[in-house]
Each structure stands twice: as C-alpha cells, then as structure tokens.
Design a binder for these strands. Structure first.
Lengths: 244, 244
DNA sequence: TCCCGGATACTGGTCAGACCACTTGACCAC
DNA sequence: GTGGTCAAGTGGTCTGACCAGTATCCGGGA
C-alpha cells in the first residue's frame, strides 16, 4: 500500500469541524445563539483559547455573528458564506454531496467558455505553448486521476491567460473543493473526455477569436459534464430506491 | 453630517490587516519566512494570542503555511487564495484597485447570463413575482446607491431561482467585495442602466427558455459594464498622464 | 402604574506565563 | 556515510486572571 502522511488534526480544528457541522447541517439554525465560549470549552473538554480560535475562524467565514458582551449567534450561511465554504459543503461526513457536485460541474460548464473567450483575447505565445505541452502530457497519460490533474493544470493556464484576478480566485476556490474529491470523480469524468477537443480549444485560443474559443471550450466541457450528471442521476435514483 | 457607527478594530484585526498587506503588497514574497510568533508579538507590541489569531486567519485563507515546530512561510496568494480574498484586494489602503474592479465587472458580465439561463430552467412563480416587485422598487427609486442595492437584490433572487449552491456562494463572495465599493461605483453603474431590460429579463425567466434568458441578461449587464469599463479606462489614462 | 436609572452578572476581548509537541541542525559514535 | 542523541527554537495548548462591553432585573421616582 502507498504510504500516506499521517494526519494530525489540531484541537481547534476538531472544534471548528464540530461547530461547522452543527451549522451547515441545520442543527443550529440562523439566529440561534451559541453557548458561551466558557461553556463550550467545558462541554467539549478543551480550553477557551481553542474554542475561541474555532469560533474566530467561523466568524471569518461569515458563519457567526459575534458581539462583544452579547451572545454569539449563527448566521445564515446560504446568504452570507463565500465560495471558500464549498469544500466543507462538498465533502461532508466523509462522502461527497451529489447536489453540490452537480452545481459545481454546472458552474464549470457555464463559466469555462467565458474564461476561454477572455483567454483568447489576451493570449500570449508562451502560455499557448504551455497549453499545448499540457495537452500532450494529458494524452500520454493513462491513469484517470493523473489525466484529470492535467486537465486542472490546463485550465489553470487558461485562467492565467484570461488575466482576471476574479476568475483566478474563483478557480482557486473551485480547485480547492475539487481536488479532494478527484479520486472519486476522476473515473467518471475521464470517461467523457479525449485529447482532441483540448487541442481544438488550444488552437482557438491561439487564434485569438473569443467566440471560437467559447464554442471550443463548450465542446471540451459538455461531454464530461453530461456523463457526470447522468451518473449522479443514476446514483440518486438508486439510493432513493434503496430507501424504499 | 450623518453619524456613523464608531469602528472598533480589535487587536488581532489590526495585526491581520498588517500582515495581509505585507503579503498582498509583495513585501513578503512566496516562500519567505515569517518571524516567529513570539518575535512578531514583541515587535507589534501585542500578546502572542493576538498574533496567533491573526496568523490562523491568514492560514485559513491559504496565505500562510504553518508547520508545527518549523517556520511559518508565505504562500503564493495568486495560486491558492480563494474568492473570499477579493474584498481585501479590491479595496486596499482606502482606495479601490481599478484592475480588480475591471475583472469583477467582467466576471459579472460573463457569469450573469449563465445564471439567468439556469434560473429560467428552474424558475417558480413565487420567485418571479419577487423579481417583478424588485424591478418596480428599482424603477421607483431615484438615488443611484439605492437603485444599485435593488439590482443586487434582483440578482440575489435570480441566483436563488438558479438553485445552485456554487453560484450562490460565488454571488455571496462577489457581493461581499462589491458592497463596500458601492458608494463609489453606483453613480457610474447607474448611468448605464434602466428598468426596461430588467423587465425583459424577468419575462424571459418567467418564460422558462434558457437561451432567451441568457440573451436578456446580457442586455441587462452589457451597458453598465461598458460604461464602467470606459470610466476605468479614462481614469487610467488620466492618472498615467498625471504621472508624467 | 409606569418608566427610568443603576447595580450586577453575565458575555466576549486581551493578556501573561507556563508547559507540551514538534522540527531543525549540530554533534558524535559506529 | 549512517544513524542516534541532544539542545535550541518553533508552533500548539492550557490556565487563570483581568478588562470591556451587554443584558437583565430591581428599586425609586414620576
């Protein structure tokens, strides 16, 4: 078996995860008050600083409303939480949430072409060469996970070429959510992909025409999106049948 | 003058802001080591817990790499930071960064139509009614900032209708970056907008056809995007002329 | 009866100091 | 060169204390 780095979850991490789960699972709804820090520390068997650190991280994610002297209350994460919460929502309790996966690949399909169009407008020769090299590496690889890593690297370069800070940060957030789930998703995604559409997209970006690039990107993303959505649909009907 | 709530920046907040600025300004490049927590506390004249809290928040934003027993080093925020960093990058040192604004409105133009298309597919009567009501409120308002708030509420509803967690979180992140800059941007954006395109978009979403909704959304966003980009361009040429 | 004001008992914010756990690097024995 | 040992420095955690705000209740005045 392949050796893996041992995971050492810190105390505040554990507290954070617990409180986060309470919030996103709905056990603690919006507006509900949290126990005081001292009380939480006592209940969880940890020190107050540990609790504080966890709560501060929750606050940073806009999940809590902390008022000096008053009570700490839960905010509505659907209304305020940012994209950085996505990883926590995607894989919760060890398994991936299919509805969240669906929304991620949907977003990928809707945004990718736009980014490709920008990239075509602002392309430079060096990046296009990198894109070509990445496609070759992708084509030469056989392992689905490894191939998916190459597609990630490819889109990373496209985002670079688009020269947009907003899309860069968006991509980073999505990748952070995507990568942990990659081993599960890779086989399905890989089934819907081949190297040719990527080559076409590379040429389109090189050509500099936004509309061509947009169409080419759509042809890259559409097949794997469809296969994944179909797989998710099958999975849903399967589990709902089991529930009966 | 209108009274404003006094701002009570906490000690860790102040430390966080300082360290963040060091990182995003490039004064501390990727890979460079940070002083030890004890040393930072001494230099900044605060306690170690205060420093720790700030560094933990930096770590949560994927801006630092902290290793137990080892040195804390700076990560490349362009490569790892998520969309939640956008507010910090948009308004830095009191003024808005024009290149960041450009990328935000670009992203808005590229993503909005896709979300509208999804919303058309998944619309329900209640949301459409809310959309109509919001447009009316928008049309009835005269103050640019207030009108922009109504457009925000409108898109909030569109995102709701799209029923996509990913786009929901994205929208939340963008709004968090957008809202503080609204007083500055509102007059420019308002100049390029009217109520009619919003009414057309509402009808399109109600109709349920994705392509129609996409086109309508583009017609909503295009004018204000163009006027804002033009204004930014003028601003850039103006300041670069001043520099000579 | 109502309402206002202040005492009080909470809350979170901050600090100091201590100890534990871990990494690093130098040194030493083999 | 390899591996073990050790000391120094780092981040991780805890305790306990005090400061600074809020909420609540209760008594006195209208």
């Amino acid at each position: 078996m392949p050796l893996q780095p041992v995971s050492r979850r810190s105390v505040p991490d554990a507290v954070f995860d617990q409180v986060l789960d309470e919030v996103v699972s709905g056990a603690l709804g919006p507006g509900e008050p949290l126990p005081s820090e001292r009380r939480l520390a006592e209940v969880l068997g940890v020190s107050r600083p540990a609790v504080r650190e966890a709560l501060q991280r929750m606050t940073q994610t806009r999940l809590l409303d902390v008022r000096h002297g008053g009570t700490t209350t839960v905010r509505d994460f659907r209304k305020y939480a940012g994209l950085d919460l996505l990883p926590s929502l995607l894989v919760r309790g060890g398994s991936v949430d299919t509805t969240v996966v669906r929304s991620v690949v949907e977003a990928r399909l809707l945004i990718g072409p736009g980014v490709a169009a920008l990239a075509a407008q602002r392309r430079d020769d060096a990046t296009v060469a990198d894109l070509s090299a990445t496609v070759s590496a992708y084509a030469a690889s056989a392992d689905p996970v490894e191939r998916q890593r190459h597609t990630l690297a490819y889109w990373d370069l496209v985002v670079d070429a688009a020269d947009s800070l907003t899309f860069r940060l968006m991509f980073n957030s999505l990748r952070a959510a995507y990568e942990p789930a990659l081993p599960v998703l890779a086989p399905v995604l890989d089934a819907g992909e081949s190297a040719r559409p990527y080559r076409v997209l590379t040429t389109a970006i090189d050509g500099g025409d936004p509309d061509t690039a947009r169409a080419a990107a759509e042809r890259v993303l559409r097949p794997s999106t469809d296969t994944l959505l179909a797989a998710l649909h099958d999975l849903d009907t399967l589990t709902s049948r089991e529930e009966r």
